[in-house]
Simulated scan of single mutants.
Amino acid sequence: MSGNDDLLNLADGDVLTSLQGGVLTMTMNRPDTLNALPAAMAETMEAVVREATRHAGVRVLVLRGAGKGFCSGADLDPDAPPSPATLDQGAALVIAMRRFPRPIVSVVHGPCAGIGVSIALAADLVIASEKAFFLLAFTNIGLMPDGGATALVAASIGRARAMRMALLGERVPAPVAMDWGLITHLSPVEDLETDVDALVATLASGPTVAYGVTKEAINEATVGHLHEALHRERYGQTSLMTTSDFVEGVTAFRERRSASFTGE
């Protein structure tokens, strides 16, 4: 068994961890960017999840975002060319969460966009405040959903609604997300922390072995094709990163204007 120090020392300034009463809380800590995800941050998060998998003292993993949002998606570095590194590391994080043998709870209190949606949905339970929203805006910059979103979102809300989210890039407010089945719990803003504490306490005191077997069975039945989806997304995304539409989409995003796509 790994010691607590081994588990907690994996974190850094961009990823905060605490372990108390069997509850491991991992917080994405880049509030100035709404916790935009660079590859290094995803790598740290994956390492924490993998170490927690081997740590019998962890009964529940809680995933949160610091500041006003959960995660605004992949970090688009204005000084660097596009790279599939974040794509690959994000996929590795989602797989590690999928394989985690005990419950994971995502707490979404604000914006949740791009790969942030995949990370949130890779958890077993998603509790959101009424002011939160979910957004797959990839097509707005000439890309496609990644991080397993093509499997995770469709498994949660069905093909039609997944197509709507992915193709139109519309915000889905948390109450609508609850109605659609994208999330499992919805809380008034003022009650979110109380509701999170109650949910996590129930899981932490429950039969974790039975939880693990149950989540494995449900995941196999609903997203057993997750690896294949990630491979398709990688092929599609890396191809799209070479297009003129992607260059225009990113340029327009940085210049805060509407993109003018040519289909090339």
Rank of each mutant, 00 (worst) to 15 (best):
I127D: 02
I115W: 07
S72E: 13
A91K: 03
G3I: 10
E190V: 13
A92V: 08
S260N: 11
E170H: 07
K215R: 11
S18C: 09
F246Q: 12
Q237A: 14
L34Y: 12
A252W: 10
G116H: 05
M144G: 00
T33L: 13
R99C: 11
H55S: 06
E216R: 15
V48I: 15
E228F: 11
E51L: 11
V94W: 06
S239C: 12
G147F: 08
G65A: 02
D195C: 10
M26Q: 08
K68C: 07
A42G: 13
A52Q: 08
A210G: 04
H109P: 02
A217M: 06
N29I: 00
A149G: 01
G73T: 12
G206N: 03
H185K: 09
N219I: 00
L203Y: 05
S205Q: 14
V107R: 02
P84L: 06
R102Y: 10
V247Y: 12
V189N: 06
T222W: 04
R54Y: 06
H109G: 09
T202K: 14
D12P: 08
L87A: 05
A229S: 15
S106D: 01
G142V: 00
K68H: 13
T44M: 09
G224A: 00
A221N: 07
R59G: 15
A47W: 04
L63Y: 01
A137M: 09
R98W: 08
A120I: 03
H185Q: 04
T17C: 14
Y235H: 14
A162M: 02
A166Q: 13
Y211W: 13
P38C: 06
V105S: 01
M241P: 08
M165A: 12
L143E: 12
A122R: 02
A11L: 02
R171N: 11
L19K: 06
Y211V: 10
E193G: 04
I141E: 01
A259D: 07
F100R: 08
T139A: 14
P188G: 01
T222C: 03
G69K: 09
A96H: 07
L186I: 00
P111W: 10
A128W: 09
K131E: 13
M45C: 11
T139G: 10
S239K: 14
A162H: 12
A40F: 01
F246L: 07
G67T: 02
L87D: 10
L34W: 11
A122W: 11
E264F: 05
A198G: 00
A122F: 06
V48Y: 04
D5W: 05
I95M: 15
E216W: 07
R102T: 02
G263N: 06
V117Y: 05
S129L: 08
L186Y: 09
I95K: 15
S205L: 04
R254E: 12
G206E: 07
S129I: 04
V105L: 08
M144D: 12
H55Q: 07
P188E: 14
I218W: 12
S260M: 12
V200P: 01
R98C: 03
A174M: 09
V176R: 15
S258V: 11
G236A: 10
